[in-house]
Design a protein around this nucleic acid. Structure first.
Length: 985
RNA sequence: GCCGGGGUGGCCGAGUGGCCAAAGGCGGCAGACUCAAGAUCUGCUCUCGCAGGAGUUCCCAGGUUCAAAUCCUGGCCCCGGCACCA
């Protein structure tokens, strides 16, 4: 298709008003959304997959006579737009290149330095992309989350949540930049310049008591190993801070002290040089053992509390540190003994390898990993990780300790016991340094008065469960997982402090509602938005009373607004709600979907609950990773920006690519070569469709019947697949199997004509949901309306004939059999070019029917004797009784593994006679004759004719160099250079 | 660790007990058409096979069954999630 034609059809759809959702009580409705995109930058090819699915479904339902509503919006809440505007301000090179790629004139850049304006600008750019992609979105309902009306809606929503008791305040830990405020630590590094991959590590602490009542507070991931503690480590030349918490005094490194202060409060007191403690010892909690304090370079004061519990039997680093210890220190520590055992028999090969040799486990693991000095940090880390993991999974405590329970249990038990004493708080830390955009180190801080949504509330959860049980969820794997996701769903912080975009939290405007929390219920606002956009409902009327009435049917509505208007709003809402389908990428599995479902479950009555969720995979780069913005660049980048993708392949190729290259649940790998292939495929189909739509004499009636039956079959399958959102199956049927059927028709000698044209028009119409531009282009001028506005083809308008399908299968089957025999023959240089086909005698039909009746699914065929007995009741079969036994024996063995399917009785003689010309041409034979098995005296030296079965004729091949057949002179290689014989009709 | 999903031919990817040696696409090879190229069409693309067949395959090892890619047991490996991320 000429590239410009897409724009032509898009404006034709716009002119016909196809995208405009019109409530029509005489029609069923279909209302689906795609989770609206955030505003972190320009869209790329990865973003369009969900939109493609949504549009395909909306188009399908529109063609089926439903009123459809496909709205969208832009999510401006949070930091993404802030960050984007910041990058514009700083003229970040990658961002500048994007602006240039998208043709944004430099004069407008200044405007984009404002976060809200930048976000709105990005939202508008998304709409342009959607139009160019051929989406039929009703833009009258377009929202951004910073629009005044949307914020009124959100305020109302939070009032309702509050009234339902869903909001609570509680202490919370959060990542915070001490200078810039709260930040989100995630791989997209929106807020960060470093450390997006950081995880939270939660350390247990172990308080080692000094004689004067102070505690040396060690941090550890494995509190259960305290039974094997031989000493405590601090860094050489360390100075320790005193952290006062409650009535207790703890000695920790200065950094550790600050961390505890941030997370747990208290205050910091005197600094203590380690020298003061050098010769003292401490008491291990629980065991009450006395152990020394020693120094080692293995300790980093900045990690944890800067104090380390040494367990040389189970921590490779401790073991190695011990080897480097001066004699006089070594003498102070108690003997090293294992406190955890692992059962040799349960180990895998690689685990056994880790624990090979003699010594305590840490010693073995260090040896196996090649770590002998503290300087071997990589090897030590490896040894540590493997041993920790192994002992956690397989380990049990030694029999004398805690009764030999498993390590996992022991860890929980020891942790609990320590905490119960009030002297062993947990301390959190990032797994790697995290640095904010402005270069400050991000820390974890306690927020005492964080607002939460109580998703964990048991009463609420019960409502979730009920709804989840009723939801239609695709794909199936996700449906299975969903109940578990709701079990895990727990209270979520729903507000933030800082310079985020968003709606101020109604109960306390010093907070801003957090991005996930303000996008849980918004589909309910879409049906109303049109009234606001048109001015029918002024902003001032968007009060709680208004929404109570419009969405919940409660109260009498907003007094300042005409009753009739409010009735209309309410009707509109009730027409479109419930939402039929919420479509989103798999990243929303645990983010958006659960809270979307939960909020609906809480706020709406059963009849208005959402009906379906649809989760799709990503578009990934060639490594299988989700596409990131960095990869998108017109030059050199592996993923082109959308404008260029549309220019190169056209929107239809992209849409087909998204639907056809993987099941919706799977990721599709972005591969330009595949896009090239897809767009070529569209060209192929175009040619085929044009041929099929041309004038001509038609084909033999039996062939047309077959084509129509195939069309019937395919249409049923397509409609069914649409209904279950199996878009890949749709694409396969429409873009692979349908053309295959048409090619077969042409190959079999069918000509374009009335029948083929009707089929081809139908076929092209089925393309309209997935490749709408192509469909319009091909049927341009042939339909009274646009294809997108015409009814979806109906299988019932094509007669279905099982006999016609069965007949074609007979031809297909004989082709396959002939090919099978010809292949080895040709390999040997033989080239038969004449064939006699023997059609099975009528009695075989009868007998084969009996065999099928008698075949038992659990195996074993019918009894030979019974069948022969039965045949005695049929005098007309008497003559064949001899052959019959042989035939039954041969056939009943193989019949079990044949399809039980169509027992359609075929008139093989008529079918093959009709296909004679085709077969002759196809195999470039000189002649093919079809005879009844029992008739005449055809040439059959190999006695093949006995093999004939109903639907599967026997044959004898001869000619070429194969044999000395009836006629003598013929070219030795009839395949070479021979023109196909002209088909007789 | 816990929860979930997986491992299929050169590649992508269908396929949940029987025409499955396994759809479809991509790639490759060959042929037809053509002065030629391209496009298009046709065939082939695990091994063997002068008669429609046989052998060995769907991560590995066992098992159930007349029959296993599909069910069961054990193992190995991979991916995702478990956070103030839309």
């Amino acid at each position: 298709m000429e590239r410009g034609r897409e724009a032509h059809w898009q404006s034709a759809w716009a002119q016909a008003g196809l995208a405009r959702a019109e409530a029509d009580p005489s029609k069923e409705k279909f209302f689906a959304i795609v989770a609206y995109p955030g505003s972190s930058g320009f869209l790329h090819v990865g973003h369009l997959r969900g939109f493609a699915y949504a549009d395909i479904l909306h188009r399908f339902h529109r063609m089926n006579g439903r009123a459809v509503f496909f709205p969208t919006g832009t999510h401006l809440t949070g930091l993404p737009a802030v960050t984007f505007s910041q990058k514009v301000k700083l003229r970040d090179p990658a961002t500048v290149r994007q602006l240039e790629d998208h043709g944004v004139p430099e004069s407008e850049w200044h405007d984009l330095e404002d976060p809200e304006r930048a976000g709105r600008f990005l939202g508008r750019s998304y709409l342009e992309v959607f139009r160019a992609f051929g989406l039929l979105i009703d833009e009258r309902a377009y929202i951004t989350t910073m629009d005044e009306d949307y914020r009124s809606f959100i305020r109302w929503q939070f009032h309702r949540l509050d009234r339902a008791g869903a909001l609570v305040q509680a202490p919370h830990f959060a990542s915070v930049c001490p200078v810039c405020g709260p930040v989100s630590v995630d791989p997209s590094e929106t807020d960060l310049s470093q450390g997006g991959g950081a995880e939270w590590i939660v350390y247990h602490t172990v308080p080692f008591r000094l004689d004067d009542g102070r505690f040396l507070l060690a941090a550890t991931l494995r509190p259960e190993t305290l039974f094997g503690a031989t000493n405590v480590w601090v860094a050489p030349h360390a100075t320790l801070s005193t952290w006062h918490h409650g009535t207790h005094r703890f000695l920790v490194s200065p950094e550790g002290g600050r961390r505890l202060l941030e997370q747990l409060g208290g205050h910091l007191g005197a600094e203590v040089p380690f020298e003061e403690l050098r010769s003292t010892s401490v008491t291990v909690p629980i065991t009450e053992r006395k152990i020394p304090i020693l120094t080692s370079p293995l300790v980093s004061p900045s990690i944890g509390t800067g104090v380390v519990m040494s367990v040389p039997a189970h921590a490779p680093a401790d073991w190695v540190a011990l080897q480097e210890l001066p004699e006089h220190d070594l003498n102070r520590i108690p003997p090293v003994e294992s406190v955890i055992r692992t059962d040799e028999a349960t180990l895998t090969a690689s685990e056994r390898e880790l624990l090979a040799g003699a010594g305590v486990p840490a010693e073995r693991a260090a040896r196996a990993s090649g770590a002998s000095r503290l300087a071997d940090t990589d090897a030590l880390d490896r040894a540590t990780e493997r041993l920790y993991r192994l002992e956690l999974i397989r380990g049990r405590m030694m029999p004398g300790i805690l009764g030999g329970i498993s390590v996992a249990e022991a860890r929980a038990k020891v942790g609990e016991r320590l905490e119960a004493e009030g002297t062993a708080p947990q301390v959190r830390e990032f797994s790697e340094p995290v640095v904010c955009r402005n270069g400050h180190t991000v820390v974890i801080e306690r927020v005492p008065d964080q607002w939460f949504l109580r998703y964990g509330d048991p009463v609420w959860k019960e409502k979730d469960r009920t709804l989840v049980g009723r939801l239609v969820v695709r794909p199936e794997e996700y449906r299975r997982e969903l109940p578990a996701i709701f079990e895990w769903l727990s209270d979520r912080p729903c507000t933030r402090r800082g310079r985020w975009l968003g709606t101020p939290f109604p109960k306390d405007e010093s907070w801003v509602i957090e991005p996930i929390a303000d996008s849980t219920f918004y589909p309910a606002y879409y049906p109303i938005r049109g009234f606001v956009a048109s001015g029918e409902v002024p902003l001032s009327a968007l009060t709680d009373a208004f929404f109570d009435h419009a969405i919940l049917g409660e109260g009498s509505g907003e007094p300042s607004l005409a009753h009739a208007t409010q009735q209309a709003v309410r009707q509109q809402f009730l027409y479109w709600y419930p939402l039929d389908l919420n479509i989103a990428g798999k990243e929303h599995k645990r983010v958006h979907f659960p809270v979307f479902v939960a909020t609906h479950a809480l706020l709406l009555p059963a009849a208005l609950q959402p009906r379906g969720l649809f989760l799709h995979g990503w578009v990934t780069n060639q490594g299988g990773a989700k596409i990131s913005k960095k990869e998108v660049a017109s030059k050199g980048g592996s993923v082109p920006p959308l404008r260029e993708a549309f220019r190169r392949w056209g929107p239809d190729a992209l849409r087909l690519f998204y639907s056809a290259s993987a099941t919706p649940s799977q990721d599709v790998e972005w591969d330009p070569a595949l896009l090239d292939a897809t767009s070529e495929r569209i060209e192929d189909l175009t040619r085929l469709a044009r041929t099929a739509l041309s004038e001509g004499g038609g084909g033999p009636p039996e062939l047309e019947r077959w084509l129509e039956s195939r069309t019937h079959e395919l249409l049923s399958r397509i409609v069914e697949a649409f209904g279950e959102c199996r878009m890949r199956d749709v694409a396969e049927a429409v873009y692979a199997e349908f053309p295959l059927a048409i090619r077969r028709y042409l190959l079999r000698g069918g000509q374009p004509g009335e029948s083929l044209v009707r089929v081809a028009e139908t076929w092209v119409a089925t393309m309209s949901p997935v490749t709408p531009h192509l469909a319009e282009e091909l049927l341009d001028g042939r339909l009274p309306t646009l294809v997108a506005a015409s009814p979806f083809p109906n299988a019932a308008s094509f007669p279905y004939s099982a006999a016609a399908l069965a007949a074609e299968e007979v031809v297909d089957r004989i082709e396959e059999d002939l090919r099978n025999v010809l292949k080895p023959a040709h390999a040997k240089g033989a080239a038969p070019d004449e064939a006699i086909l023997f059609v099975a005698a009528p009695w075989k039909h009868t007998v084969e029917g009996w065999i099928r009746e008698g075949a038992r699914p659990e195996g074993g065929g019918p009894n030979l004797r019974d069948l022969l007995e039965r045949s005695k009741l049929h005098p007309e079969l008497a003559a064949y009784r001899g052959e019959m036994a042989k035939y039954i024996a041969r056939v009943s063995a193989s019949i079990r593994s044949e399809p039980k399917g169509s027992s359609e009785r075929t008139d093989d003689l008529a079918i093959l006679t009709a296909a004679q010309g085709y077969l002759t041409r196809r195999f470039r034979f000189r002649s093919i004759s079809v005879v009844r098995e029992e008739e005449g005296k055809p040439f059959d030296p190999l006695a093949r004719r006995d093999r004939a079965r109903p639907g599967r004729p026997a044959f004898y091949l001869f000619g070429g160099v194969l044999g000395p057949p009836a006629s003598a002179a013929r070219p030795t290689d009839p395949l070479a250079g021979t023109k196909p014989s002209t088909p007789e009709s």
